[in-house]
């Protein structure tokens, strides 16, 4: 699951850093904006089978690769 999410993030941001620094703040660095957020949610739905409605998306809970991985794993469980 972890590898899959990192792969999605790499595709989305075009950055290698998301694979090396898992505590990188994706919003502050401008790697992800609202548009990319929606893409992320759709990819997570298609590839990981987790359904996250837009109103459940609280930025502070999704701002780093680590937080995203934790969030997806908790939704999967």
């Amino acid at each position: 699951m972890k590898e899959k999410i990192i792969e999605i993030l790499q595709d989305l941001t075009g950055s290698e850093e998301v694979a090396t620094n898992l505590d990188l703040n994706l919003f502050d660095t401008g790697l992800i904006d609202s548009m990319a957020t929606v893409q992320l949610l759709l990819e997570l739905q298609a590839q990981c089978g987790v359904d996250v409605p837009v109103s459940e998306f609280e930025r502070s809970e999704w701002e780093t690769p680590n937080k995203i991985i934790a969030k997806v794993e908790s939704l999967k469980a």
Binding site: S34, M35, T37, V38, Q39, L42, V54, S55, F57
Partner: peptide, 15 residues
């Protein structure tokens, strides 16, 4: 506006 209009519209179009 970002959460309730922009993101929802983008989500709808992309989905």
């Amino acid at each position: 506006f970002r959460d309730y209009i922009y993101m929802r519209l983008v989500f709808f179009i992309m989905k």
